[in-house]
Design a protein around this nucleic acid. Structure first.
Lengths: 246, 246
DNA sequence: ACCACGACGAGAGCAGTGCTCTTGCTTTTG
DNA sequence: CAAAAGCAAGAGCACTGCTCTCGTCGTGGT
């Protein structure tokens, strides 16, 4: 369906890519609010107004970068998932699901540490009055889906303590979760999904706090702390293998 | 010790306050990166350069607002704490500590929802290359200390399951926690402090996700969801009363 | 093969920004 | 009362995002 493009369209997509590339370069160097259309254009040897042939404005350029960032984090998570064998040793080793969980968590944190500005772009404060366009929601879901996959596989392998101890979610939350599960076509019980959503937010809370400097003079052994925290999150969801002490 | 100020010093502090006030007004309206020195000055009927007599630059003005925001959130948390009786019915009602915990959590979320831009300022992405000056760390700690207080009181009242189930923290994290506990002069076991730090970050992860729009089309019953999540956080720390289902 | 249309790059220009420097004025201080 | 210090104002610099116009050049239809 992608018919051979003429020289013009080819040039267009090349230049669009070059713009995004240069913009990303500036982004990683100086952060989102220092990203300037003019300096991107300058660096590319064109005049600022020419840039508007490719992006309607600064916000749209940023949106493109946001989508790329979501995707990049998503593939990082997916790769971590793929790197740890799944079906193969199902039930053979009850610890495998915990390891997969932690692998994905580590991948998220690792990517964030490697791309702090891009992470801040997607999980920091939303820019000005900027409302995330729908185009961002799908890429944003990739990482969450990787986390979900771990739990689904563990569930299928019977590696989940169910239900986990602790207070049960309220009916409204379960209803939300049921809708979400239906939309994503998931085979998870609503209450489990509720916990997962909560854990999902909490995971990014850990990463954000570390990245945004709130652990300064509080936590020094960041990596060990993170691993421990994610293990506890897994334990809280009833992931077998996470656990019981000493 | 604060001797009577001359008319000049009085005027100075008045104007400084007016600047911060107007700046905050613009902040709540349009967010941090739309805050402009010039428009603050304009609104105050002075010229932009005059503002530099009071703040060395835009960053310093922002820093002042950041400190104010930390303080405002801190008092919100402290008020929530003060509003729920503590020593009085110690051990009489084991649920009281859970209620206090949730009161503080709700106060944090409530303040965040009421002051989204100020929340974003302190818990969103740090501005450009901006490193939080030391002056911000103390106000920032107030909220955390309110959370800690709940746990300390619960601990003192013997309302804590100790140790909670789940994987124990690694030695390095416990060492960090021990240092932190010593610095703050706390009577909490290191492993408990480790959990608390983790829960602290996770709590703000929940608030940030809600505020920054990541719960769009995922969680509808935000308040119930939040209450449930914080109850589970409490349960994870072994707070009695948080608990055992059905 | 031509030609009109559309995409394109360049440039000028507008309104706005943070920040600096100089110039006078006013208040405080010695 | 005079000198010193604090202060507001204005002009100015180097930027920013964005718009509009004006030649140019590739492309699809006739």
């Amino acid at each position: 369906m992608t018919r051979l493009q003429g020289a013009r369209e080819r040039a267009r997509s090349d230049i669009t890519a070059a713009i995004k590339e240069e913009a990303r370069r500036q982004l990683v160097k100086q952060g989102a609010d220092r990203l300037s259309l003019r300096s991107v254009a300058r660096e590319l040897g064109m005049v600022s107004s020419a840039l508007y042939r490719y992006f309607p404005g600064r916000d749209e350029l940023l949106t493109a970068l946001i989508i790329d960032a979501y995707d990049a984090l998503g593939v990082a998570a997916e790769q971590a998932l793929a790197a740890t064998p799944d079906e193969a040793r199902r039930a053979a080793d009850p610890q495998v699901h915990l390891r997969r969980w932690q692998a994905v968590c580590r991948a998220v944190r690792g990517w964030a540490l490697e791309h702090p500005h891009e992470y801040a772009l997607i999980y920091g404060s939303p820019v000005p009055g900027y409302a995330a366009p729908d185009a961002t929601t799908d890429p944003a879901a990739r990482t969450a889906l990787a986390l979900i996959a771990v739990l689904c596989d563990a569930r299928a392998a019977g590696a989940l303590r169910t239900p986990p101890s602790g207070p049960p979610p309220p009916a409204t939350a379960q209803a939300d979760a049921a809708r979400l599960g239906a939309r994503l076509d998931l085979a998870l019980e609503p209450w489990l999904l509720v916990e997962l959503v909560s854990v999902w937010a909490q995971l990014f809370g850990l990463v954000s706090f570390e990245l945004f400097g709130h652990f300064q003079r509080v936590v020094d052994a960041r990596e060990e702390f993170f691993d421990h925290a994610t293990a506890r999150l897994a334990y809280g969801m009833g992931l077998a293998g996470a656990g019981d002490p000493r």
